[in-house]
Nucleic acid binder design. Sequence first.
DNA 1: TCTTGTTTGTTCAGCCATTGAACTTATAGG
DNA 2: CCTATAAGTTCAATGGCTGAACAAACAAGA
Lengths: 404, 404
Amino acid sequence: MPPRPPRRDDPVRQRSLRDHNLALVLRHVTAANRPPSRAEIAAASGLTRATVSTIVDELIAGGLVAELEPVSRSGVGRPGTGIVPAGTGPAGLGMEVNVDYLAVCAVDLTGAVRHRQVRRLDQREHRPAQTWQALAELADQAVGAVTALGLTPAGGVIAVPGLVEGDTIRIAPNLGWQQVALPRPADLGGLRDLPLDVANEATLAALGERHATGLRSFLYVSGEIGIGGGIVLDGELFGGSHGWAGEIGHVTIDPQGPDCHCGSRGCLEQYAGEEAIRAAAGLPAGAAVLADLVGGARAGRGPVLDALDHAGTALGVALSGAVNLLDIGTVVLGGHYAELIDWLRPAIERELSRRVITARWSPAKVRASALGSDAALVGAARAVTQAILDDPARFLATRAAPAA
Amino acid sequence: MPPRPPRRDDPVRQRSLRDHNLALVLRHVTAANRPPSRAEIAAASGLTRATVSTIVDELIAGGLVAELEPVSRSGVGRPGTGIVPAGTGPAGLGMEVNVDYLAVCAVDLTGAVRHRQVRRLDQREHRPAQTWQALAELADQAVGAVTALGLTPAGGVIAVPGLVEGDTIRIAPNLGWQQVALPRPADLGGLRDLPLDVANEATLAALGERHATGLRSFLYVSGEIGIGGGIVLDGELFGGSHGWAGEIGHVTIDPQGPDCHCGSRGCLEQYAGEEAIRAAAGLPAGAAVLADLVGGARAGRGPVLDALDHAGTALGVALSGAVNLLDIGTVVLGGHYAELIDWLRPAIERELSRRVITARWSPAKVRASALGSDAALVGAARAVTQAILDDPARFLATRAAPAA
DNA sequence: TCTTGTTTGTTCAGCCATTGAACTTATAGG
DNA sequence: CCTATAAGTTCAATGGCTGAACAAACAAGA
């Protein structure tokens, strides 16, 4: 899923220069909390006003940004015209296949969610082809809705709870999928002509969190039926050699621990996965495990509190290892963990302070996900727009070619 | 210790362009296994011959590269003049403070070690100031030797077995140091005018391995008295938020395991540190533990083999966690581990294949360090030259300023 | 020895992106 | 109405890369 390879060993020509500054200016426009004027962009970016002007012209011509109506602004001097991401600009489509629901959303260049739809559907009862078809229907509607808003769909990313390599889902245990290929564009209706990608759900959720929170480096851990994770380093998603980084769910907690379905034993999932917590809390198996846990914990029931403390301890052990290894300052808890954080945090922080060797100088922070259960969905959509923000020149080139 | 911050949010001017290509050409010169001609550099880098010519001229003027005597080369056509790293170019000084020795070495731009000296000295019996003084003497001699070779010392990096933040050694357990500051330049004799840095020993060793092996991504684990680690991702050293990444020695193997001097329990060091292996093997405490272990293993002694298998198992558990988290393809064993690899590897690989969730598609490789016990020393020296290779323009600027 | 073909390295006009300064435009305040 | 101030544009100058032409250096064959 790597959308932009910034090649250190490439020669640099004049054009690359412009490409870089194009991205620089666009970033300033989308990141600012108030529509900046050309002069403000120049001051903030370090470029001259002359350069910013020509670059903004190019971005306007490409439909990526637009001028605001000259609104009177306070202060003396000629008022600047605000530059905003174009209302008719590209939109990123995020799609999510999860155990018991499908979801689609669309974000614009600012990252705002412009469309969102969720459909309950148990994938375990269906074959992948049926899932793809249902997803294509949702996506079709999203394309329609987005187009009605004046946006142009620019690509889509599908979030899947499993290991993805290239365009193939190697394995998605909780869906019961193995070696499933991405659907052919022809089978995807309105997505036919759009670049499409699949990626791991937790990885994309980390990407979503990165943008929602502005955090530069953190470890994202999502606890649902399985436990997933994603790593963001210095603002960039870290994928590892194959894009499989972040699999914290199968880090060993106790080498002699209980067998895990992955073939190993003592994995974190056996201590802090939904099923493990439920069983330890003495709750019945069923659909509303999370609600039962939250309810039980709020009511102060001993078995539930103990189960969450145990899970938190195991999480803390695994996270300590990760922090020791990566020297990362923040841990973000997502998925169900976000709602359980009040009861998990004490144990997690206790283990972190004990087991992280640098904890006394720089303790890691533990916080709940800002996007909650939408993180992966929004992250998938943002992966598309992020690729455009990171390399607008490429986007403009592909836009210009079909038009000509 | 980050010598070159490649800033994504900086504006790019014409000069940055030249800076980038300067580095690009210099990399080609130092990385080639045969002195390349300007034309070959052009072909390999993608720049035109004209551009390469002017860039090479600039590098020659700056004393970073030199033309070879026109040696007759096979083939038709005008023979090219080989470009080589300048024999009188800058040299990087690497220094190492370890428990029972001090060492200094110097490398040139090609990475070749041009000087090396080790002095047995037990730091535990001395105060830091005495260590710095002894190190300064060694460094003085190195500066002299290097200067005699026609090289110009360009900076130094000190490798220390402990946690370093900025110019302060937070803690170096095996040296018994805490909150030790880098010596003032004035106290360093011949190093007076050189930029000086300290960094973690294992981190620098990883850097050394990166250059010696050409591996792009790997996890380096060094087992000596303590266990250190370093992470290289896509050719770049990964330091984490504070430069403390790679502390695999205190990853938890068993949450209920034996107490560790770090305040935690069940740390890897308690299973695979030198002392733990020695005790498990039933060997006497003393200076020659490594030799005893190798001897015992070669002789096929049961307790030694068992001890190494146990250590390998623990290492395998910790490495599995790291590989799950980082999706990294290669593990490099350094320090004493390099010599014990034959007896550690089976257990390590057994655990990796069991515990790494992606092992069946892409098993991680385990290999021994290429530099052995010199890795940190050489890595420290290369950190200096690497900074020059990565940003020759800055080096040329600082060179030109005092000259003018 | 001379010629031809091949490859290297240099020169130079042209191009492209940024700069800096001058200039125009638009506002507030007196 | 005038002045001060800030935004945005225009334009010559600058720096760096390109491409093509050219000179230099060599091998091979006549």
